[in-house]
Design a protein around this nucleic acid. Structure first.
Lengths: 139, 139
DNA sequence: TATGGATAGATGCAGGATACATCTAAAAGA
DNA sequence: TCTTTTAGATGTATCCTGCATCTATCCATA
């Protein structure tokens, strides 16, 4: 039983949402999406965030918009208003060269973290399996 | 060039420390260490945290002590003072049955996140490789 | 024409987690 | 006696998330 029950995934599935306030890795996901799409804007990205998210927790639009402005403030993306497509004006972002490098840094970091997590899972499950073996021998 | 330079790993290695304020996953690492060791106390655990950490950022002792008290408040560990070993008194922790289940939940969550990150890394690097192919064809 | 829905961007605030500094205290060693 | 090691803990600022809320434009339709 998770520490907190998640409304999206229910109480039987131990999801990220139920483990407390974890980092959602919004920045790297946004960088990758912009790389793949060439250019895009917040509302459009928000529709694809879930498919690319690193956790099964939802990435809020509020976090997305703030991340985009933060990336721009740090020179990883640039934006311009697009007003000729109908509907409300869109702030269209694209990666800068520095943003591409920053994405590569994220890939290096997440590659390492991914392997550490896989090792963690093996160890956590192997200690459980040892106990199961003892239980089987005792039973 | 990372957004922030890390003093431990230097500026050429893109480490977690330089990517801003990330989640350090202290709780699952502490749960696993307690599972493996049977019982332990904060100062002892702090020596082994780095070897088991999921990121290359240091896990501060302040975070460790707060995490232990938090785990106890939620019934995942229990503690008792140990005063017969010489030196300052130690607060010795051990997992509860609920703590073992919580570790299994963490393993399920981190298994999923690990695979998502691995997919992220493949995608980030494959889009880079596509560009390299085009560049090679143009060159 | 009015009205609601979809689109689009953004802010405010509370709470969780980290970063860094600092504190207390007992025991061991020089 | 003085310093270091061991051991636990707190204070504050900042970062990130969660949730609510806000403004505004355009479009369909009643």
């Amino acid at each position: 039983m998770p520490q907190r029950v998640c409304r999206r995934h229910g109480k039987d599935y131990p999801c990220t949402c139920a483990m407390g306030n974890l980092y959602r890795f919004v920045e790297p996901v946004v960088l990758l999406l912009l790389k793949q799409k060439g250019h895009s804007y917040g509302y459009d990205l928000s529709g694809e965030l879930q498919a690319h998210a690193l956790t099964d927790a939802e990435i809020e639009r509020a976090a997305l918009y703030r991340t985009l402005r933060h990336l721009e403030a740090n020179g990883n993306v640039v934006s311009e208003w697009e007003t000729d497509k109908g509907g409300p004006a869109r702030r269209v972002y694209r990666l800068t060269a520095q943003g591409e490098r920053h994405l590569e840094e994220w890939a290096a970091v997440l590659d390492h973290v991914s392997k550490s997590m896989a090792r963690f899972v093996r160890q956590a499950r192997s200690s459980r399996r040892r106990r199961t073996v003892r239980a089987a021998a005792a039973g």
